[in-house]
Amino acid sequence: MARKSRQYGEPSDLSLTSMMDVMTIILVFLIKQVDTEGQLVTAAENLVLPVSTSTKVPKEVSLGLIVDHNWVLVDGQQVVETSVVSEQDSLMVAALDAVLREKRENEKAALLAKGESDEGGGNIIVQLDKNTAYDIMFKVMATCGASGFTNVAFAVTMKGEE
């Protein structure tokens, strides 16, 4: 007996309704989360920032300093090992001071070139893990102040947004 050839029907359209449902839910969720002002600070990946009741958000771009378990980083570049900062007795972290002074000079030069005055010291946002010892934090902060970055702010996670 001759084998009956399989009959294929008309190709059916892909049902997009369920896909649309998923997309709509994702879209609504994302719209709810969208920050229209944008974020000037991005949390470092390997840190857990402390939670705070502060609602103040940075209004202008500042230099970023990150202190993680291994390194102190300025604008993403490794400057000195965190263990070195912890072990030294002096409040001044020499390697960090050198980098910060250079950045501050560049900032001043850029402002002068634009014809703007440089008053009130530089802005710096420091990101530290919530378990970082106060000693490390204090040395980093003191070095920032000494190198001209007197407007020091710590990055925190807003309460209720963690």
Partner: peptide, 16 residues
């Protein structure tokens, strides 16, 4: 454009 973790800042007063 989404911020999954909203960051704030805590300012401190450094001696002049």
């Amino acid at each position: 454009m989404t911020a999954f973790q909203k960051l704030a800042i805590v300012e401190i007063n450094l001696p002049e």
